[in-house]
């Protein structure tokens, strides 16, 4: 009889798309009652290993765990914690908390978006910066503040943005290969 099944190839491709411990974790729970409730734990493992959840990785999780892909991507887009795109080398967090906001944080945010050409939750094409907003960093005395990686800058004026970004761009320039996006 003609072989029309594609499962062997799909299983192999799915296993190849995921870190080995994730495959082992899924295997360990496969067939158990309520194994689909391990979905979030599985996605955590994938993100810990890869930094984000790629479409390929989510498809692989869906196939190996036999959880519908729509459910996987539904969960991944529901939780703020899960990232669907690779993170930039530098994480910019603009505080939009009350104190920063009344001190003009929205103008800082606008300037950052204009300079970087991205919106909140996005990463620049060169993979250098990711932009996020946050609510209060606990240093309202410095408002408005911008946090880049683990360093807090404040008080910040829109005009300061170019200088702040410049520092990181300069630091990164050199023989280092850019991170693929």
């Amino acid at each position: 009889m003609m072989m029309t099944d594609n499962w062997t190839e799909i299983e192999a491709a799915s296993e190849a798309a995921l870190p080995e411990p994730v495959v082992a974790f899924i295997r360990q729970h496969r067939g158990m009652a309520h194994s689909e409730s391990q979905l979030i734990a599985t996605l955590h493992m994938v993100q810990a290993a890869n930094g984000f959840l790629s479409r390929e990785a989510m498809q692989a999780v869906a196939q190996l765990a036999q959880i519908p892909l729509a459910k996987v991507t539904g969960v991944a887009t529901f939780y703020h914690y899960f990232r669907l795109h690779p993170r930039g080398r530098h994480m910019i967090n603009v505080c939009l908390g009350t104190a920063c906001y009344v001190k003009g944080a929205d103008k800082i945010a606008q300037r950052l978006m204009a300079d970087l050409g991205i919106q909140f939750g996005e990463t620049t094409k060169d993979g250098m910066f990711s932009l996020e907003s946050t609510r209060c960093l606990g240093c309202c005395g410095l408002a408005p503040v911008v946090m880049v990686d683990d360093q807090v800058h404040g008080p910040v004026e829109p005009a300061d943005i170019t200088t702040i970004l410049g520092k990181y761009i300069k630091k990164d320039k050199g023989p280092k290969a850019p991170v693929t996006v």
């Binding site: 729509a70 991507t73 887009t77």
Partner: peptide, 27 residues
């Protein structure tokens, strides 16, 4: 079939196929 699911949350919630991909690329 489970082609559809709610994606995102709050005001930005959208019902659609996985990854909110095109219907002709879905299951």
């Amino acid at each position: 079939v489970h082609n559809l699911s709610q994606h995102g949350r709050g005001f930005n919630t959208v019902v659609g196929p996985a990854n909110l991909s095109r219907m002709d690329e879905s299951v």
